[in-house]
Amino acid sequence: MTKPENMMTWKDLEIGSIVTEPGNASQYQTGAWRSQRPIHDFTKCIKCGLCYLFCPEGCIGQNAEGYFEADLFYCKGCGICARECWTRAIKMVEEEE
């Protein structure tokens, strides 16, 4: 785990403030920004993967049965996946408070 920025002292920084842990932004939760969430109806899903391709967050993956599903840790709720799904298998619903 990367030390959070408000805990880091100047001694914790690498020379030139280089970050040596590739892709550690994946520890950062962007899902908290969401006001809508995608709900997948697997009965309609043909597993084409288009939603996965068009998600700006790259947060849609295949579950054990091969269906595509959003990782809500990252999903910002943009609704692109729902808009682009051919079979209308995805519905956007309001996040509850």
């Binding site: 920025e5 408000n6 880091m8 100047w10 001694k11 914790d12 920084l13 020379i15 403030s17």
Partner: peptide, 9 residues
């Protein structure tokens, strides 16, 4: 939150 630390270093 971290700029000053980079400059101190």
């Amino acid at each position: 939150v971290i700029y000053s630390e980079t400059k101190k270093a």
